[in-house]
Design a protein around this nucleic acid. Structure first.
Lengths: 222, 222
DNA sequence: CTATGTGAAGTGGTTCACAGCT
DNA sequence: AGCTGTGAACCACTTCACATAG
């Protein structure tokens, strides 16, 4: 294991491996090979092995990977063995849709008993939402309490929020991002069409629908 | 111009350049430099120049790029000089949110008169939606008509749909994608947590919320 | 014989640095 | 002087191919 510096591309593939292993495991397959994982995810077997080898020697030569073991390792690597609390800012149409999605997206993970039919609840979910609209503050959407954005700092500490999802209008995105940074948030998923400027130790993923559609448009003509 | 094979990474940057140039243009700046575009987008000036040079010599040495000219070139390259009709499949919470977003996301583009205050309507938008729920079929959400999924093939041809947004449940995603391919769709934006298998000439972008959050979780612990 | 882990080779995208135009 | 366009150098990720273990 040489866990020095993991390339971003690899980190983006890890959840796919997790999902693949989970799928094999659910189908009562105890051992998976890099070729199987490769076929499932669409990557080459060599790439799967290289990626996993960055974190340790999880497989057995001549055999493959123990599905349950690998699954747990991947959860460890991704930091999903503990509860990960996510916050959401902005309760417009998109924000509310994400909340509903959140509830349904709770995926199970194999329980410790080794019984494939036993599942412990997924640990990554949105546990708090924020908005400025006084009509929204105080209510509960999809079982998630809504606070005023002014409380972002306090509630982040109180609830241990680690990831923040931004579904706010473009002109408030920068300010909200700044609040998140002040609150010690280390990862932001940004849906606003704005380039957020944050310190180097904060990771921002952009999910800009307009941008994605515009680049897809390229492929319809080429 | 050597428009042979444009790397995917470049295509993903083009809409950002478009947005940057638009921003400068709106601020009545007639000439933009690669360094300005670089600062705005967060890329290096050299990269901006290399990217643009893939499509032609748009700049003037010693001067920079004419904002209006570059803006139109970028729209041409992306195929945004014509109307691009997008379809949406799946009217759950996410689908409906995307529709509302769609209306608000209509960005202006500079008009031909050269008057920065004159804007022609944006050409890329969702013009049709599909669902299986009989309660939703026939109604109009956010000014967009909703048809039954059975009509996907027919309406795609009739309306000239070029891009399809998939916001369907995981288990129907594969089947819907297959319908899209049959309908001649060349680009898909997939929100379902499923690896779609499509022919090589169909481009799929994945916007899988769970995957993104899971890889972001990695950065909260590393 | 099967499948991992890994140096070595290959590939593709980024940055450098400078010629050339204004 | 200022800024683009671009070959060359650089860097990073991917694929190959094989030693190694079961």
């Amino acid at each position: 294991m040489k866990q020095d510096k993991i390339p971003d591309v690899v980190v983006r593939r890890l959840p796919l491996y997790l999902r693949a292993v989970e799928d094999f495991y659910r189908k009562d397959q105890a051992i998976v090979s890099s070729s199987q994982l490769g076929e499932w995810t669409g990557f080459t077997p060599a790439q799967v092995r290289k990626d996993l080898a960055l974190f340790g020697e999880f497989g057995k030569q001549g055999i493959g990977y123990d599905a349950r073991f690998l699954h747990n390792k991947l959860r460890e690597i991704l930091g999903l063995t503990r509860d990960v609390s996510v916050g959401l800012v902005g309760l417009g149409n998109l924000g509310r849709a994400l909340l509903h999605h959140n509830v349904r997206a709770r995926m199970g993970t194999p329980g410790v008993e080794g019984d494939p039919k036993h599942w412990v609840p997924e640990t990554l979910r949105i546990v708090a939402a924020f908005d400025v609209d006084p009509e929204k503050v105080g209510v509960t959407y999809a079982q998630v309490p809504v606070y005023h954005v002014d409380q972002l700092l306090g509630k982040s500490a109180e609830l241990g929020l680690e990831i923040m999802v931004l579904a706010v209008p473009p002109d408030s995105a920068e300010a909200v991002a700044y609040e998140c940074v002040k609150a010690g948030i280390k990862a932001i998923l940004n849906f606003a069409p704005v380039n957020l400027v944050v310190p180097d130790d904060v990771k921002v993923y952009s999910a800009d629908l307009t941008l994605e559609l515009q680049s897809l448009a390229f492929y319809t003509t080429h």
